[in-house]
């Protein structure tokens, strides 16, 4: 498993990758991209599900349950909003094709 300095190296490389991935983003996509990256950290759902599966006793179960509820809200809501924002870019391309 990932430990010690290996984890640090992964952390460093991933951080650079994160900068690189969005470094050339035009201003018109700032809001959709913020929403999109918000959706991506919805991956926390995976961890919350495992935490709920492993939880012992009512306290841990209820905290983990709340965790899964919140994580699902993050992932699902993030997708719904981002998809709607980007849907408009698609329709605009179509319109342009029609006009051409």
């Amino acid at each position: 498993m990932i430990t010690g300095f290996t984890a640090l190296y992964i952390f460093m490389i991933t951080a650079f990758a994160g900068f690189e991935i969005i470094s050339r983003v035009p201003v018109i996509l700032h809001t959709p991209l913020m929403s999109g990256s918000n959706f991506v950290h919805g991956i926390v759902l995976v961890g919350a599900m495992v935490a709920l599966a492993q939880a012992r006793g009512p306290l841990e179960v209820s905290v983990a349950f709340a965790g899964v509820v919140m994580a699902a809200g993050n992932a699902v809501g993030g997708y719904a909003v981002t998809e709607r924002m980007l849907e408009m870019f698609k329709s605009r391309e179509k319109q342009q094709k029609v006009r051409q």
Partner: peptide
Amino acid sequence: EGFVMRNPAMIILGTVVGAAGTLL
């Protein structure tokens, strides 16, 4: 938390968002 849960997907994606979000 991905590190705590030993979940590489969470580690990688969380860090990517952390970096990309900082740049944004």
